[in-house]
Amino acid sequence: MPKKDIKPVTIKVRPMETKTEIDERGAFQRQPNRFTTPFGDGEGELKAQPGKYRLFWARGCHWSNRASIVRELLGLEDVISVNQVGHTEDPERREFGWEFAYNDDLKDPETGAEYLAEFYYRADPEYTGRSTVPALVDLDTYEVANNDYHRLTNYFETAFKPYHKEGAPNLYPEALRQSIDDLNDNVLFPFINNGVYRMMFAQSIVAYDEAFDDFFTTLDVLEERLKTNRFLFGDYVTDSDVRFFVTLARFDTHYYRNLGPIKKRISEYPNIWGYARDLYAIPAFRHNTYFHDIARGWDTKKEKLFVDYNSRFADDIDFDAIWSQPQKRKYLSKTPDKKFLVD
């Protein structure tokens, strides 16, 4: 039940990316994360403790989806509680950003909050950015403790390691950490994960074309890499694979609607498409991928002459069957029946 002594907080209307995060070239410049105190044993760092934190994420948001996947892969379900945010159909409520749309009374049952923004403004009343997911909230204060999507999964993999389930996969092995960080920070983030948003939010054709070239050139590079590697770093799933997967799961189902003519669908990259399905076969990936929510149409009433493809057909598409089609990726591995490195 919500704590009685937590004071209510005043929240503000959500800023719009295309108004506040566009530079003079018309290019999208994603807002920096506000709450980035790391987890660790040092002075001033956050401490990993069972039951202290609650993860909020959204089905459509790949930045937060990867945290929910890693939480389940590592067996942290009883250590870090979770709830999902979304949007109701009420336009006045939507102005305040993510809300607890999946709860019957539109309130988070643990904290009593109606909007994700409450945790942001309680932590910083002068906060001016968007209230984003993932958000890891301190249940003692009902304040955002960390919203650093760049590093949150790494903290789950390291700081929370004493609480991992028995036989949990090592997604961030020490011998590969520098290489994983390099791929995550210098390739996947700028060109793939954020690359699709750079295309979708671009306000000039120059900025759009630049993001388009970055995205598809990088896909070509990764397609070649996956020709001989089962996963991005060889035989075993790592943190990088989670980050790549969440964008792949959304491209053909959602992102394409906000782009102009695309070079290729993900399903037209033989190695990447097989790789994505290999990951989807893992329960934690499947459980945390809500294709029908990702693909939900914009005009469910279908009263207009021209209605977008997803509004007409997405509910009838068996995404699970498509993504469960057989693939032969395991033969690229020296341990074909094992997808994880276990300490």
Results as ranks from 00 to 15, higher is better:
7 K>L: 15
244 F>A: 09
263 K>P: 00
161 K>Q: 15
78 D>W: 02
277 R>Q: 12
185 D>R: 04
99 E>P: 08
151 R>T: 15
73 L>D: 00
128 T>W: 00
140 D>N: 15
314 A>W: 03
236 Y>I: 04
126 E>P: 05
60 G>S: 03
96 F>H: 08
311 S>M: 06
171 L>E: 14
215 F>K: 08
265 R>S: 11
137 V>L: 08
321 A>W: 05
114 E>W: 00
25 R>M: 12
269 Y>W: 05
91 P>T: 05
65 N>V: 07
222 L>S: 09
212 F>I: 03
228 T>E: 15
15 P>V: 04
105 D>F: 06
217 T>A: 11
310 N>R: 07
16 M>H: 12
8 P>Q: 02
228 T>F: 04
316 D>H: 13
17 E>K: 06
212 F>D: 01
294 I>P: 01
227 K>W: 04
211 A>G: 13
32 P>S: 11
267 S>I: 06
275 Y>V: 06
148 D>I: 09
14 R>W: 11
331 Y>F: 14
155 Y>M: 03
124 D>T: 04
119 F>T: 05
227 K>C: 11
31 Q>K: 14
16 M>F: 11
287 H>D: 14
14 R>I: 05
330 K>Q: 14
225 R>D: 13
250 R>E: 06
168 A>C: 04
283 P>H: 07
63 W>R: 03
115 Y>T: 00
165 K>G: 09
294 I>V: 05
70 V>R: 08
279 L>A: 08
289 T>Y: 08
183 L>T: 05
127 Y>M: 06
2 P>K: 14
141 T>Q: 13
125 P>E: 13
188 L>P: 08
138 D>W: 11
299 D>I: 10
339 K>V: 14
80 I>E: 01
275 Y>S: 11
249 A>G: 07
96 F>R: 05
16 M>D: 14
216 F>R: 02
255 Y>C: 02
280 Y>L: 03
131 S>T: 04
79 V>H: 02
244 F>I: 08
48 A>R: 01
281 A>D: 12
335 T>L: 08
104 D>H: 03
227 K>R: 08
5 D>A: 15
290 Y>W: 12
44 G>V: 06
241 D>N: 10
214 D>F: 04
304 K>R: 03
173 P>Y: 07
156 F>T: 01
273 W>Q: 01
202 A>R: 01
309 Y>H: 15
273 W>S: 02
71 R>F: 00
324 S>W: 09
250 R>L: 09
202 A>E: 10
224 E>M: 10
109 P>N: 09
66 R>N: 00
258 N>G: 15
14 R>D: 14
56 F>Q: 01
105 D>T: 10
104 D>M: 01
106 L>A: 02
35 F>Y: 04
33 N>W: 07
318 D>N: 14
214 D>T: 03
190 P>R: 01
210 E>T: 14
171 L>A: 10
